[in-house]
Every structure is written in structure tokens, then in C-alpha cells.
């Protein structure tokens, strides 16, 4: 049943995080979505959220960030705490990069890290689970279970890889990131697949896949505009808030090969321009990795 109307639609509201009253332990919860028009049209939708990404195995993290955060990179919970309190992120996105290593089987650590990061933070949490399809089932169950009641935003569902994320969302009450490769119709199909699995539409956030600035970002930008326009013109299967997480931004040549003195500035500029453009295209959450980008984005979004 595609629920469509010829009238313009409102983007569905998706709640992230749960306060004590809502069954969790967060000090705040966020509601994203709710737009009725294009970004910056003064429709009163909330400010976009800026998420700082951290990870549980810094070997798989950009050196320019490792250099900046220093020892924090080796203490995931402290890194998360600093993300909120020192760097001012609206929320943390926890990446289980440890699942990238060959023969990974430390599933207990997934649960423990999720719990520690939840304890160290007061705001809603995004958890990026497994990097390996074979690990999905176990990893998503562990982080889903560890975050039960907290209404995590769990990532990432893809067309041929969505069942475990969906199952964790259903079993433990989380929201999911649905990622499709830069294509409006594929984004729609995935949302339909998730709905058929039983995931309620108000627990889906679209990730249209973000290429890095200069490396195909224009495709992502346009597909975000198209998804938003399709939703506003009545396509309920696309009327979800969007998240933008250009994961390769800090690995591009411009950042990697910048002169040492310029590298940090280049990293922040590259992330900033990408994230800000994504917001103009309609993203409700932008994810960045360099702490200084958080500050710059928040300043740009004030006023």
C-alpha cells in the first residue's frame, strides 16, 4: 500500500533518543523531519543536527583526526564524552571499525562499548554497526540489545543487507539509516522493503550516499534535492528526513597530500563545504569527523 496523495506532504518526524520519560536515559531526545518546504524557507523546522563521528578502532580512522584528538582515540567512551562536552556535537555517531579486521569475533566488546558510550553521553546516539555482511546478524543484535530503550539511530541498511538492522530496530525499538546508492528510486525501494519487514516509516532516516566533495558529491547533492522534492510533491515513501555522512571526505587527495601546516585547515574546509551543502540540499543530520568542523558548522547555522 503506497500511501500517496496529490497534496504536498510533510516530511515524517523521526524521534531519536529516549529520555527517562520515554523509556531511556538520555537527557534530551531530538525530533527531526517535519519540514513542509525546501530548506531555509522559513518553515520553522528545527536546526539540522551536527554529529561527530568516533570509532572503536582508530587504526581505521583518518590520521588528521587521530592527530587532533590524541589519546582520546584509544578510549571510545572518553572520546564520546568529549564529542558532546568539549567539541559541542549535537550527537555522536559511533562506528564499529573494529569489525573491519579479519577474523573479528569480539562480539561482547560491541555490547560493552555501546553501553559505555551510552553511559558517557547524554544525547541521542547513532551507531554504525558491522562493516562485514557476515557479521551483521551478531553485531546488530549486540548493539541493538545493549541500546534497548534508547531509540538509537542504527546504521546502515542497504538493499541487499537490511534484515539484521531491521530486526534489531524491531526487537529493541531503534530507528534505522536506509542507504541507497545515489538514486531516488532505489531509495524508495529500500524504504518499501523496510516497511514490508515491519519497520515503521517514522523510524527510517534516508542516507542517499554521500560522495566526497570533488569526488562525485554533486550526484549526492542532486539526489538529496530530488528526494526532498519528490517527498514534498506527495511521495510518502520518500518523505523521511535525510542524513549525510560522506565517509571518504578526509581520505581525499586534497586532505591527505596537503602540506602539514595546511592539513587541518583543509580537512575542516573539505568537511564543512560538504556538510553545509548537504544541509542546503535538505539533510537533517550531517556527520563529520574533525572536531573543529563541528564548531564551524554550528556557528554557520546560528542566526
Amino acid at each position: 500500500m503506497t500511501e500517496q496523495s496529490d497534496e504536498g506532504l510533510t516530511i515524517r518526524e523521526v524521534r531519536l533518543g529516549a529520555t527517562r520519560e520515554e523509556g531511556g536515559t538520555r537527557e534530551v531526545s531530538y525530533v527531526i523531519g517535519g519540514e513542509r518546504d525546501l530548506p531555509f524557507s522559513g518553515d520553522g523546522a528545527g536546526r539540522p543536527l551536527v554529529a561527530l563521528e568516533i570509532c572503536d578502532d582508530p587504526r581505521f580512522w583518518p590520521p588528521v583526526v587521530r592527530d587532533y584528538v590524541g589519546d582520546l582515540a584509544n578510549d571510545t567512551a572518553e572520546w564520546a564524552r568529549a564529542a558532546e562536552r568539549t567539541y559541542g556535537a549535537d550527537l555522536v555517531r559511533l562506528n564499529f571499525t573494529s569489525t573491519k579486521q579479519r577474523g573479528f569475533d569480539a562480539f561482547d566488546a560491541i555490547a560493552a562499548t555501546t553501553e559505555e558510550v551510552l553511559a558517557a553521553t547524554a544525547r541521542p546516539l547513532i551507531v554504525e554497526g558491522s562493516n562485514e555482511p557476515e557479521l551483521d546478524s551478531e553485531v546488530f543484535r549486540r548493539c541493538g540489545e545493549a541500546g534497548e530503550g534508547e531509540r538509537l539511530l542504527l546504521g546502515t541498511a542497504e538493499a541487499d543487507r537490511y534484515r539484521s538492522v531491521a530486526a534489531a530496530a524491531l526487537a529493541y525499538g531503534h530507528a534505522v539509516i536506509a542507504q541507497s546508492p545515489i538514486d531516488v528510486n532505489l531509495a524508495k525501494q529500500l524504504n518499501i522493503l523496510l516497511r514490508e519487514t515491519g519497520v515503521p516509516q517514522d523510524r527510517i532516516v534516508i542516507d542517499p550516499y554521500a560522495g566526497a566533495l570533488g569526488y562525485g558529491f554533486e550526484y549526492s547533492y542532486s539526489v538529496m534535492e530530488r528526494i526532498r522534492l519528490a517527498a514534498l510533491s506527495g511521495d510518502a515513501d520518500l518523505a523521511m528526513p535525510m542524513i549525510c555522512a560522506p565517509t571518504d571526505t578526509l581520505s581525499v587527495r586534497e586532505v591527505r597530500e596537503a602540506a602539514p601546516a595546511d592539513q587541518e585547515a583543509m580537512a575542516v574546509a573539505w568537511e564543512f563545504y560538504t556538510a553545509y551543502a548537504a544541509i542546503v540540499a535538505g539533510a537533517s543530520i550531517v556527520c563529520v569527523r574533525h572536531p573543529l568542523t563541528v564548531e564551524r558548522l554550528k556557528a554557520a547555522l546560528e542566526g
Binding site: 551483521d136 546478524s137 546488530f140 543484535r141 541493538g144 540489545e145 534484515r163 539484521s164 531491521a166 530486526a167 534489531a168 524491531l170 526487537a171 529493541y172 519487514t197 515491519g198
Partner: peptide
């Protein structure tokens, strides 16, 4: 049961 149901939804 939640775990069992999980394996059913996730296809394992």
C-alpha cells in the same frame, strides 16, 4: 524470545 525473533526477521 526477542533474540529468537531477531534471527527470524534477520533471515539467519
Amino acid at each position: 524470545l526477542r533474540r529468537l525473533g531477531y534471527t527470524l526477521v534477520d533471515g539467519s
